[in-house]
């Protein structure tokens, strides 16, 4: 009979002691992550408390944002954030999926690699650089077109008609697309630059997910005599939809918090939106534009409350993304 080998006792006690120390060190360092989260929550909560105490929940329903009278409500920034993010998402998602399909399904390798790489580089361009491009190039182009509404006779008529509507506090469908000023800045420019910025996130997630679709899935569909588009629409996209939706929601999270590019071009106005070219503001843009200048404590606190709202919004969006990925993932894929 073979005697079972016994582990040397000395060594084992030594190693378990050092193991425990190592585990504690790693755990302590990893706990800093939790600490950062709790500290953020505490800081934001503490600093937004004066505003929340003064305005209560009406902070989220009040239209007015007035540093002079110290009356603050966030509804115009909340709408601004939602409009810019959702519009940018609506424009960019179809484009992103199409470009992902091109890279993964259509393009030959010599073209797919550079195009895919270009799209990834787009994701690495910093927000300020997009803002600079929007301000120096796109805004100039927009402004050129907008000036025609103040120079050419028949367009002046449209503008005067719309101006009377705007002054009365309303707008019409046609007037919604007539420029209200001619410096190029405003809601439309913010949506354009936001669209360009979130495209690469959705596109690269969609491409990765589409590449993961098993070849059998495609081949089975081709064997039935399907065309390429039928394979894409009936076999590939349904299989990849969970991942794509996840990418879309992550892009939404990014759009909601996108700050400087938007702050640079949106015009920082809290008036009601009468035209797609009128100035507006988002929660993030107000933090960037006003926090540094806010003198009164209640103004400062109101701006931090916007940050607190953004914090919760991003946690919520993250959570929804997980649920969607879990729900929509076809059975059998992890």
């Amino acid at each position: 009979m073979i005697e079972p080998v016994k582990r040397p006792a000395v060594n084992s006690s030594l190693s378990s002691a050092s193991d425990r120390v190592f585990e504690y060190i790693i755990l302590a360092l990893a706990s800093i992550i939790v600490l950062v989260f709790l500290l953020s929550l505490y800081q934001l909560g503490k600093e937004s408390w004066p505003a929340l105490q003064k305005f209560g929940l009406s902070f989220f329903t009040n239209r007015e944002w007035n540093p002079v009278t110290s009356n603050f409500g966030a509804i115009s920034m909340i709408t601004g954030t939602l409009i810019t993010s959702l519009a940018a998402l609506a424009i960019s998602v179809p484009l992103a999926i199409a470009s992902a399909l091109f890279v993964a399904e259509y393009a030959p390798k010599w073209l797919a690699d550079p195009v895919g790489y270009l799209i990834e580089l787009l994701a690495a361009v910093p927000s300020v650089v997009y803002g600079l491009f929007a301000l120096f190039v796109i805004a100039k182009g927009l402004s050129h077109w907008q000036q025609s509404f103040f120079t050419s006779p028949e367009k002046i008529a449209t503008y005067t008609h719309c101006k009377s509507l705007w002054d009365a506090g309303t707008t019409s469908f046609q007037c919604f697309f007539v420029p209200i000023s001619f410096d190029g800045r405003g809601l439309a420019l913010a949506i354009i630059i936001l669209t360009i910025m979130i495209l690469p996130y959705t596109a690269s997630v969609a491409r990765d997910v589409i590449r993961l679709v098993p070849a059998d899935q495609r081949e089975a569909m081709y064997a039935l005599g399907a065309t390429k588009w039928e394979v894409i629409s009936k076999a590939i996209l349904p299989y990849a939809r969970a991942g794509i939706m996840g990418g879309v929601i992550l892009a939404l999270g990014r759009a909601l918090g996108e700050t400087l590019a938007v702050a640079m071009v949106i015009g920082d106005s809290q008036d009601s939106i009468k035209s797609i070219f009128s100035g507006a503001s988002t929660m993030a843009s107000v933090i960037a534009n006003q926090f540094g200048d806010a003198q009164e404590q209640i103004h400062r606190s109101s701006v931090v409350t916007l940050g607190f709202t953004l914090f919760f919004l991003s946690v919520l969006v993250n959570y929804i993304a997980r649920i969607i990925i879990a729900r929509l993932t076809p059975k059998g894929i992890q």
Binding site: L27, A30, S31, I33, V34, V36, F37, L39, S40, Q43, L44, K46, E47, L250, G253, L256, G257, E258, T259, A284, I287, A288, F291, V304, G307, L310, F311, S314, V315, V317, N318
Partner: peptide, 26 residues
């Protein structure tokens, strides 16, 4: 503690940079 730390790390990754600026300010 593993699931908690992973979840919080993911959540931190989604928080907008400007909000982190407010936190560091405080």
């Amino acid at each position: 503690l593993m699931p908690t730390i992973r979840m919080i790390s993911d959540v931190l990754g989604g928080i907008p940079a400007i909000v982190m600026g407010l936190v560091a300010y405080g």
